[in-house]
Design a protein around this nucleic acid. Structure first.
Lengths: 210, 210
DNA sequence: TACATTAACGACCGATCGTTTGTATATCTC
DNA sequence: GAGATATACAAACGATCGGTCGTTAATGTA
């Protein structure tokens, strides 16, 4: 009846499980999330996981992969529709903030949670998380360098430096907005980067005033 | 023989346990830390904990208290030796960075880890952590306001805004420095705040050039 | 000295953890 | 259709979880 091949059916439930895992892990972390709770949340049995993954660590690694793809589609891709340079750089910052304020993930940010969880725990998961963060920072750095090459940033800008600032100001919105209710941290994060870029940009018309 | 009163002895081991708990929690989190491992690390039995605390949550609450005191003594107090104003503000930032780079805690920062762990988990521990972070941010905000009142910051500065920036740029050093080895993030965090303050301060002699 | 209190312990509890085993069923290959 | 494979499950495993219980030794109070 159903035309699900076993492989199609398998990869569908695999994707559904990973989506749930990323969602739950944004709240409780990848290790804090237990297979029992994940099974309950997906309406399956926990022993069924072992048909898809050798052990919990393999599932964690695939969850990081899934989250990186989600980030690329939800944050990076929309920002790439803005014209290259300082406008794209700020669009990237705003797309991240929108990702957070839209509540795409219940915990706000998978990578913030998982980064805090694994930054001191050597192993494959930590390495995979570190790679994802490195690639993200490298991408931001490239946007900075491109803006500078287009003459949209004062010449003396260090791309590594500015990329760190943009990332830090954006990422700390997650704990601030969740710990102290209210929208203030979003305003602060947005304005911090906006004013920083406006101060560097020779053409103020490229960026909103406020 | 020993002049330990039972109360003195009790409060001594209580403090020793809390110090260990804060240290371990900076790595694995307050919930990730299990009583069994804490007992092993302190050379005691886990059942002994229940002579000092009703349950794990009470120990967690006291650990937050202990960590807040450590932060006040190791970061806030040294910075207060600098003259009020923009110099104290920057001294505060540098004291925090020194706290991290000195490796006072094996996980870098107790509050970063615990914040990420509890920002989505309602309960007394979350409330206590939120209060500690609120008090810290309020303290930074007051230093900003004082610097502005002394005429050491351009008049248009919003203390909430600048306090958020200083905190975010300082705190994100923790995951960055641990995930990507190297000292770069310390340089970035230091220079970001320094250049921001220098741009606002009418008297550049108050701050180092670089 | 008599008695209460405290610190600390070993042994054990039910629950949950990640994982293994065995089994049933559906799907693909031939 | 036959045999291999993939999906999924229930049941159970040993380990560990937070927590309880009963006890011992030391210290305090009377």
């Amino acid at each position: 009846m159903t035309h699900d091949g076993r492989r199609l059916r398998g990869s569908r439930s695999r994707e559904a499980i990973l989506e749930r895992a990323v969602s739950l892990a944004s709240v409780e972390g990848l290790d804090g999330l237990s297979l029992g709770r994940l099974a309950a949340a997906t309406g399956t049995s926990k022993s069924g996981f072992f048909a898809h993954w050798r052990d919990k660590e393999q599932l964690q690694l695939d969850a990081v992969e899934w989250a990186a793809r989600q980030w690329a589609e939800s944050v990076v891709a929309p920002a790439l529709r803005a014209p290259a340079g300082v406008r794209r750089l700020f669009a990237l910052h705003e797309a991240r903030l929108k990702f957070y304020s839209d509540g795409v993930l219940p915990g706000g940010c998978f990578f913030f949670t998982v980064q805090a969880e694994f930054d001191d725990r050597p192993g494959p998961v930590r390495d995979r998380v570190a790679r994802a963060m490195r690639e993200w920072l490298e991408f931001v750095r490239r946007q900075v360098a491109e803006a500078a090459a287009l003459g949209e940033l004062a010449g003396s800008v260090d791309p590594d430096q500015l990329a760190y600032e943009i990332d830090a100001l954006g990422e700390m919105v997650v704990p601030h907005s969740r710990l102290h209710e209210g929208h203030a941290s979003f305003t602060h994060a947005r304005r911090a980067v906006l004013q920083r870029l406006r101060a560097l940009c020779p053409d103020p018309a490229l960026l909103p005033e406020d």
